[in-house]
Design a protein around this nucleic acid. Structure first.
Length: 488
DNA sequence: CTATGCGGGGCTT
DNA sequence: AAGCCCCGCATAG
């Protein structure tokens, strides 16, 4: 592992996470050792990404995620697998007082979730609805965690095809707030519903710019959520996360000054989508924005023009309308989205290993957004089982099938040396068939916009953010090129 | 009560 | 058999 950071990549080479700069897969018999640095914790990962966290990182230890992830048994105690539960929304897609939408975090516990779904929308009192995640070729997006030595390897597969729910910390805060209120009976109803709560949050730390009181009836789900993102909030104020370490803007480096993660941080900003009106991108600095949520569209779908509606469907997924479609998809999910993008089914098998994360924004923009509601089964789509999500078997198999493989570092050809590095750092033979050249070739040929990538990724501007997409985050950033009025 | 993890078990390919 | 999901149980906060 005599890797000389400088030789492998420069800070400015790309905006890849450290984990993405190294070729590895959660199923590898042996994961990279002697890591030189770690990624800072990412709450809202999205896309096919990998991160390598410091085993000391509390959030990583807790296998935390902004998305509501539940444990999924993969019969492999070495690798923890979790799948996304989606998001709970108002079945009527009502608009909150602040113009946002109700985007509740699905309860992880099955029973609690069933209860939750029986509740009514706090805003319009209509039923709540769980929008399941099908971002991984029809299956929920999966996250894999594996502790190995001093590092915690994280790998995500799939692109969330739904808005972000409340973050865990927000949900917890809301619950505790409700509890406190219920216990403090002397407060007037009015006070309970309005000022106190938000005020309390702000007073005590912080931090829930996206939690707003809504005209509610039911006390339990009072804070509808969803953002307004107008309020920049210091990351460290965020309660349940170990703010001390995770959110510093740079890698946790070990003898190497990693590239600033500010770009990633920015990615977590809340975004608001306003049909017909200028779109805003509230790039609130700091980790916590990640939770100040995104997907906010001010207009009820019903008032949208067809064009707007299409856009909304693609990016914002108007729930009430789309759910109708949803119900029609009883047949087994077909591959779409990325596989469609890649065009060849063979690539699909390799998708899990590519840094598709960086493509999300663009793909959405092109209408390739893997939105289940608009899914059009690709004629070349392979059978569902070709999706590699298993962690049960630790073997080389994952690297075998595709005739052509694409590399993890789609963001920058300069990372090619990593392969050599990998050859050295990983037990020989672990990646016998890796063909860096082919990988890049594939990337280039299948992802046209790749050509637009700057050879050197400088600090990302907004477009870059979207292009690099994911960036931890919000998949529902709307149309990248519509976000011209970037704030902050 | 709910979040988390574990692991049995059934279904599909 | 492999891979995936559902479900129940145990534990912890």
């Amino acid at each position: 592992m005599a890797r000389l950071p400088g030789d492998v990549y420069d800070e400015s080479d790309c905006v890849c996470s450290y984990g993405m700069k190294i070729t590895w897969d959660i199923n590898d018999p042996k994961l990279p050792q002697d890591l030189k640095q770690f990624d800072s914790f990412q709450e809202w990962t999205d896309g096919y990404v990998r991160f390598i966290y410091n085993a000391e990182d509390k959030n990583a230890q807790r296998h935390l995620s902004g998305w509501a992830m539940r444990n999924t048994n993969n019969h492999n105690c070495q690798i923890l697998k979790k799948s996304c539960l989606g998001v709970v929304v108002c079945s009527r897609n009502c608009t909150l007082l602040d113009g946002g939408k109700l985007l509740l975090r699905p309860a992880i516990c099955d029973k609690a979730r069933q209860k939750q779904q029986k509740k009514m929308c706090s805003n319009c009192n209509s039923a709540l609805e769980l929008i399941p995640c099908r971002g991984h070729s029809g299956y929920p997006v999966t996250n894999f965690w594996r502790l190995d030595g001093k590092a915690i390897f994280f790998q995500a597969k799939g692109v969330h095809d739904h808005p972000r729910p409340e973050s865990k910390s927000e949900t917890e805060a809301r619950r505790s707030a409700v509890k406190r209120q219920l216990s403090s009976s002397h407060l007037s109803q009015k006070k309970k519903l309005l000022d106190p709560e938000v005020g309390r949050y702000n007073d005590s730390g912080g931090h829930f710019p996206n939690i707003h009181p809504v005209a509610c009836i039911d006390g339990t789900e009072r804070f509808g959520l969803v953002n307004d993102g107008n309020v920049p909030v210091p990351a460290q104020l965020y309660p349940s996360f170990q703010s001390a370490e995770p959110y510093k803007p740079t890698y946790e480096t070990v003898g190497y000054q990693g590239e600033p993660l500010s770009s990633f941080q920015k990615c977590t900003s809340a975004r608001i989508y306003l049909p017909r009106t200028p779109c805003y991108d509230f790039s609130v600095p700091g980790y916590m924005n990640s939770s100040s949520y995104p997907t906010l569209y001010k207009e009820p779908l019903g008032s949208l023009s067809d064009n707007d509606r299409v856009q909304l469907n693609s990016h914002q997924q108007n729930l009430s309308v789309l759910n109708t479609h949803e119900r029609n998809y009883d047949s087994p999910p077909k591959l779409h989205g990325w596989k469609h993008i890649f065009g060849k089914s063979a690539y699909a098998d390799r998708n899990d290993y590519g840094q598709i994360q960086t493509n999300t924004g663009h793909s959405y923009q092109n209408g390739e957004y893997p939105c289940r509601y608009a899914r059009t089964p690709s004629p070349v789509a392979p059978a569902l089982q070709t999706v590699i999500t298993t962690t049960t078997k630790v073997s080389y198999q994952a690297y075998k099938p595709p005739a052509v493989k694409y590399n993890d570092n789609s963001c920058d050809v300069k990372t090619l040396p990593n392969f050599a590095h990998m050859q050295d750092s990983i037990t020989e033979g672990n990646f016998p068939e890796i063909k860096a050249q082919d990988d890049f070739g594939l990337i280039k040929s299948t992802l046209g916009y790749q050509d637009q990538f700057p050879t050197k990724c400088e600090r990302m501007d907004n477009l870059d953010l979207y292009r690099y997409g994911s960036c931890m985050g919000n998949s529902f950033i709307g149309q990248p090129y519509r976000f011209e009025n970037s704030e902050y």
